[in-house]
Amino acid sequence: MGPRTGSTQVTQEQIVLALSVLLFVAFSVTLKGFFAPGNLLALVQNVSILGILGLGMAIAIIGRGIDLAIVTTMTMMTAWVLSLAGHGTPPLTAAAAGFCLSAVIGIVLGVLIAYVEIPAIFATLAMASVIYGFSRMVLVGEDLVYVPPSASWTRVAGNAVTLGVPNNVVFFLSFAALVAAFFRFTKPGRFLLSMGDNPFRARIVGIPVRPMIVLQYVASSLTGFAAGLIMAMLIGSMNTRQVNSTMVYDVILVVVLGGVGLSGGRGGVRNVLVGTLLIGILLNGMTIMDVPYILQNLIKGLILLVAIIVDSFVNPRDEQTSQQGDI
């Protein structure tokens, strides 16, 4: 991207933020019940899962990868935990098992990408299929798994409110803070940013690139798993058919909309928050307006398109400066 990221330039993040504010103001003025504390909390609550998944995806994307298996990991691992708990395993033990298996998934992904050098987009796609198939065959018997009675307290915890803020929003925000701190104040975080920026330099300067890639996918898998647990706590079940939905596209949308560069190294937690915010406002507004689900998708797509078109006018790319293989 080069010099265009200089300080005088308007970034995509700012555009999306402006768009969010615009929509927010428009909805507040035109829609009854939009600008109410209850609704605003509901707004954030509805996108918190998406936001957490977005954070996981951002870790992968910033490190110059992508994790298309994140939704599958989330769904299948959570379903397994629920199913284990349903068959009498103590909930915490079950969760620990899910945690471990998610980490293993991350390690396998990382090894495939870092050591076998399979392109990330492809490795994660194939792994999504493997995870789903393996889980359905061995771990999870049914399509829809409910939170068992032995863990009904999690339902309470998931829907509780702390200091006026729903717990899953608290989870989301604290998670965001955690990831932000990871990128800013820890060595692995810095390494990931640098690897995404310039993998050649990263290798020469002495960053353990391959172990860091493994770490990156372990982090994204675990984030997915955490999102799944929070989701189960919130709605009380996990539908494994979700794997076949287009949810992973929504996750990418949230991340990239906020301005995280798909070519790595650019962006951070703030961008994910901005992207999540816009989608949240949009979905919430449309729900209030009672827009049918099908049209909601249409509008979501159009908004995404508008955001990237505006970005292309603000930050024009030309043949002399464009990067090769930058899709």
């Binding site: 099908i294 249409l298 159009l302 292309s312 024009p316």
Partner: peptide, 21 residues
């Protein structure tokens, strides 16, 4: 000169919504 991945992702969503409709 938009990014291919995002753009076609958007058209994927839009056309799919149209078809569903």
């Amino acid at each position: 000169r938009l990014r291919a991945f995002l753009t076609t992702l958007a058209t994927l969503i839009i056309v799919r919504a149209l078809v569903d409709y």
